[in-house]
Design a protein around this nucleic acid. Structure first.
Lengths: 337, 337
DNA sequence: CTGAAAGCGCTTACAG
DNA sequence: CTGAAAGCGCTTACAG
């Protein structure tokens, strides 16, 4: 078996309390004692047992991140930001992927992270009031990212405002008939992105005195093939839109695919704007709304670590800005038609 | 504070050992006793303390995954496969991202996961003999994914064979001058992919009696912009290649960008083949080698869990197959030129 | 500055 | 089938 604190103490000729003090960098140790202990630790390759330490300190030195759809680029970027911050701390990162509503419910009912982590980072998953209560009862610091809860610090982006910017951009290019393609408005996991972005879409139209046309709204699924299908449906309309705003880049890629299939030149015959600014958006020349995804992760992790280290736990709302990135998919030469 | 096993025992009118037996599903408990204990557990919302359990059982119920470059699609896909398998087990997944050689060295020297995890999944990072020895000394089961170690179970794909397939495909389309764009052949972290794929490239040329032309080899960095630059360099050659094999899709995207900038039609004027079959490859019409990335993750996790649960720990090598996916970037109409 | 002792919350022989 | 007791490897008052 591995060496224990007793082995070190015996070999260094001190008590285990002294070894513990050296380990925990207590100032109350004579320099020569410390040196002797450190030498033995080094010699033996001793490493303190985490479980024992946890048991007595009631600290795990781990934080958990709970996120849906691990493979979607958005979440990956957020994860990357989180990881970067956590890696520079003393904490370890435990990951929980929640893909289905059942899984989600099970998680927040059993709180499997309880007692295994000192804090929680919840990405994009809205929490129901009883779930929030349960978290707080467990006294587990939590930070929400890309979603918010009344009593918890939350890091969000302005989805309504971003969508507004996107649609206003199309209007400024002369478009009057603008379709909106999105995922479900009331999805299983309770996301509000699609709804928020639609609100921005509607607000922009209204602000510019354009009519809201129900047939231009295509809410379906958060999948590229839905973007494809929705675009075909829009094109089949008696009066098809001259521009399409997709609630995320992935949908936009599906839209673009469909338009090309129909022989339309994106950015010339019809304009497309996405949302996310995935890496691929640049390659495709997609005008889109850039979200600071990695920065959301960083910010969330920083807020959590601050709460953990300094005990600051005010339920602040951090809203990160979004920007319109203009590319060729919405170039203006067509629009004045 | 949270309830402890003592609270449950007292309230149920039994000893703590009996509560423990119920918790651990020992058969030696009278059904009515069990029922009473379970009722109290439920009533109190009691949850056993992990640290205490770990301390006495010396099991953490966690496994760690160590991977580089968390955001690269390849690793994400592997991670996804791992997560899917681990989520269905009793284990939790701790993630360590290792991006720099210094970080890498530090990790394998300090083994920060030691005592925090029951097993290790190492993705793509080759281990030096002393590092392997250290792992084995720590008696920590480990499985290698996309890299191999002599004494450890390893899940790999046939990179040499995949590259061979890719180049042979180009040759079959009539190409004789085939460039090769890759990342560093001897990268800091010790990856061997680029080298392996180049070996496949060379083997295919040799097998078909084509000359190896040093000026067609462009080894630089694993970044899209290098693909871009390398392509420009190849085009500037007195006798530029008629086809380019890129060691991964991301490089291929850079290559394609450059070709388009130069006014070349990919798949007509010049052929391009990538490696990885990223989601984006389909959108771009890139012919490429498909790797079962998620499956590699699954397989690795399964092997590790088997080792953990059943104690099977034979150092088996699992080689997963790769396939050529033909798309428009290498369509044959040009090649007979 | 340092050591002996108590205690963290469990599991597991050992008796019965 | 069940309970009292020992022990896992630490940290932390408490004395000195």
């Amino acid at each position: 078996m591995a060496y224990t604190i007793k082995d070190v103490a015996k070999r260094a000729g001190v008590g285990i309390a002294t070894v513990s003090r050296v380990l925990n960098e207590s100032p109350n140790v004579l320099p020569e004692t410390r040196a002797r202990v450190l030498a033995v630790i080094d010699e033996l390759g001793y490493r303190p047992n985490h479980a024992a330490r946890q048991l007595v300190t009631a600290k795990t030195n781990a934080i958990a991140i709970i996120l849906p759809f691990l493979t979607r680029p958005f979440f990956i970027e957020v994860l990357r930001g989180i990881e970067a911050v956590v890696a520079n701390s003393e904490y370890q990162l435990i990951i929980f992927n929640v893909d289905s509503p059942e899984q989600r419910t099970r998680y927040f009912n059993t709180l499997p992270f309880l007692g295994r982590t000192d804090g929680l980072l919840i990405v994009s998953l809205p929490l129901a009031p009883p779930e929030i209560k349960r978290l707080q009862a467990a006294n587990l610091p939590a930070v929400m990212i890309d979603t918010q809860a009344a009593n918890l610090p939350s890091v969000v982006v302005d989805n309504v405002g971003g969508a507004f910017k996107a649609v206003e951009h199309l209007i400024s290019q002369g478009h009057q008939r603008i379709g909106f393609v999105s995922g479900q408005l009331e999805p299983d996991l309770g996301f509000t992105v699609n709804r928020d972005r639609r609100r921005g879409y509607e607000a922009a139209l209204t602000a510019h005195h354009l009519p809201l046309q129900p047939e231009y709204l295509r809410a379906g699924f958060d999948r590229r093939d839905w973007g494809h299908q929705a675009a075909l449906e829009l094109l089949a309309l008696p009066e098809p839109p001259s521009a399409i705003f997709a609630a995320n880049d992935d949908l936009a890629f599906g839209v673009i695919d469909a338009l090309r299939e129909r022989g339309l030149k994106v950015g010339e015959d019809i304009a497309v704007v996405g949302y996310d600014d995935l890496e691929m958006a640049q390659l495709v020349g997609l005008t889109t709304i850039h979200q600071p995804m990695e920065q959301m992760g960083r910010k969330g992790a920083e807020v959590l670590l601050a709460a953990l280290n300094e005990g600051t736990r005010r339920p602040t709302l951090y809203t990160l800005p979004v920007d319109l990135i203009e590319r060729t998919s919405s170039s203006s030469k067509l629009s004045q038609a």
